[in-house]
């Protein structure tokens, strides 16, 4: 092979490596929390806090049935229209109000699971949310879901690192993450 060819090849490789390092994934986990089921949300939060322990940067996007988890049960917001009031009444008001995805049995199953978790020292969704906040897990809430269900920013919990966004923000974070999960 001629010296010139080698030089061209080297230059090509150099550009490739440069683009790869630029676009390469960061040590980050991006997660979509679509579900509002207690068990699934708990799993999501456990993975999130574990990832921080492993040295990762963690971003969680709450959308659709995941949004009511972030409502504050102590906050009352007036001035909603009929649909907003209905959604507000029918969807869980906060993390302590979620149901199991299986074996809910009219609430009995969930109550049993909660007491079992307490007995076995397993953290609740509420407690795990507090842990996530302490660990610096960033939370983004889907603005469209909030609007659809008639939730306002004023009725959400005081989470230390919470912002409101759309799909582009998730994709930006997911694109630069080593792991992406949909729960």
């Amino acid at each position: 092979m001629k010296k010139n060819d080698l030089e061209t090849q080297f230059a090509e490789l150099k550009t490739k490596v440069e683009t790869l390092t630029k676009e390469g994934a960061e040590n980050k986990l991006s997660m979509i929390v679509f579900s509002g089921d207690m068990d699934k949300v708990l799993a999501a939060l456990i993975i999130a806090s574990g990832a921080v322990a492993m040295g990762m940067d963690v971003v969680m996007f709450f959308t659709f049935w995941g949004t009511p988890i972030l409502r504050d049960k102590g906050k009352k917001v007036g001035g909603k229209d009929l649909m907003g009031t209905m959604f507000g009444a029918m969807l869980p008001k906060g993390a302590c109000n979620l149901k199991l995805s299986k074996m809910n049995m009219g609430g009995m199953g969930t109550a049993m699971m909660k007491s079992l978790m307490k007995k076995k020292n397993v953290a609740s969704v509420e407690e795990m949310l507090a842990v996530a906040g302490e660990l610096g897990v960033r939370i983004y809430v889907c603005e469209m879901s909030m609007d659809l269900m008639g939730f306002t920013r004023e009725e959400m919990i005081a989470y230390p690192n919470m912002e409101f966004c759309g799909v582009a923000k998730f994709l930006e974070e997911a694109k630069s993450s080593k792991i992406q999960l949909f729960i």
Binding site: S49, A53, M54, N121, A123
Partner: peptide, 13 residues
Amino acid sequence: KGLPCPMPVVKVS
């Protein structure tokens, strides 16, 4: 002692 997943790893980190 007595703490289940994920707390041991979270606390140690």
